[in-house]
Amino acid sequence: MAEDGPNWDGLLKWSLSHADGTRPTRQLSEEDRKWFTEAMQSQTVDVVKRMKEITQVMLTPQHVLEAHEVTSQDIQDLLDELKDHVESIDMANDLHSIGGLVPLLGYLKNSDANIRAKSADVISTMVENNPRSQQSVMEANGLESLLLNFTSDTDMHSRTQALGAISSLIRHNNSGITGFRIADGYTGLRDALESDSVRLQRKALNLLHYLLQENDSDYDIAIELGLHGLMIHLVSSFDADIREAALRGLLELAKNRKLCTCGSSLGKDNEKLRQILEDQIKGISLLSQEDLSAAEEERQLLDSLWVTLYNEPSSL
């Protein structure tokens, strides 16, 4: 389906003919300026045209695609291309105006798990640090569709990509955070932390830490759902990124006195936490200098959490 790509060779030749790197670039003549402007505009038009073509494919019924021998891999390749296009904020915002957002969200319900995952990846890219696209996705009920995949999809990769898209969608987006909370998204995070997927656990921990930083009122939700206990368990994970992320979450709770050392319903959990921290500190202290350098962030997190919880220096 793809047409000839942009004339990058022509643009490169033009650039090289006007600057050799040894002297300041000369002032553009009016003719050169007009040529360059038209060249850039033509590239923009081509991208929009291409996104419209991809949108038409997404709008085409499955049986018609099959009749024309369009495969699942073909659709995945188109979604990869679309992802590249919407890395530009302007193109991401244009996708909704040309009618591409609704069918993209529809692909979250596709029978093919790879297509569901790819569509979530495109959504994640288009809404990241993009308030306008975040609003468009929220208004199109995209959060609900992503939450459904995150919590209920039978394919772990699709679940993970949906969570990544949710994270991009609700960051710096108050209505998104509220919607996540109302839809019981924290229970989904708990289930993710209980899963066997390292990638899903990482994404869940990172989003949880962000939410705890943003909303003091969410500390109690995390405690009530037992997320602190799951993070305590993950401090001893074999994966360094998970250990660090779990320590960050616990440190956030500890700084706000949501973890204490005695006299509460968290007493047993804190006894377990102290033992785990002691074991991790001992393990860190036995590392070689080279390995210790690689584990510096984890060492600092362990030390900070120990000091915050027990008001005494650790042995690190």
Rank of each mutant, 00 (worst) to 15 (best):
M126A: 14
F150A: 02
L163N: 00
I182W: 12
V137M: 10
Q161S: 08
E87F: 09
M156I: 11
P103T: 08
N130A: 01
H68Q: 09
N174W: 12
A165S: 13
T151D: 08
A113M: 04
G176Q: 13
E66F: 04
D184A: 10
V64D: 07
V48H: 14
D46Y: 10
D94L: 09
Q161K: 13
K49I: 07
V70N: 00
V127P: 02
A165V: 04
L104S: 02
V86T: 00
N174E: 15
Q135K: 15
D112R: 00
P131R: 14
D94S: 13
V64C: 05
D90M: 13
D84V: 14
A183M: 13
A92E: 05
T60K: 09
L147V: 04
S133N: 07
M156D: 00
S88C: 12
A67Q: 06
Q62W: 13
L65K: 01
E53S: 12
S167T: 15
S72D: 11
L104K: 00
L95P: 05
Q76T: 05
G179R: 02
S119Y: 01
M91W: 11
I166P: 06
R116L: 04
E144D: 08
A140Q: 11
V47Q: 05
T160S: 08
H68C: 10
D90K: 10
V86W: 04
S72I: 07
L169P: 02
T71M: 08
R181E: 15
Q135G: 15
D153L: 09
E69D: 12
Q43K: 15
H157V: 06
R171I: 15
K118W: 03
K118Y: 02
L101D: 01
T44I: 14
H85T: 05
A113G: 03
E69G: 08
K52F: 10
S111R: 05
R132D: 09
V137Q: 06
L169G: 05
L146P: 00
I170M: 08
L169H: 11
I54K: 02
I170K: 06
P61K: 12
A117V: 03
H172G: 15
Q73Y: 06
S167R: 15
S168Q: 12
D74A: 06
I89T: 15
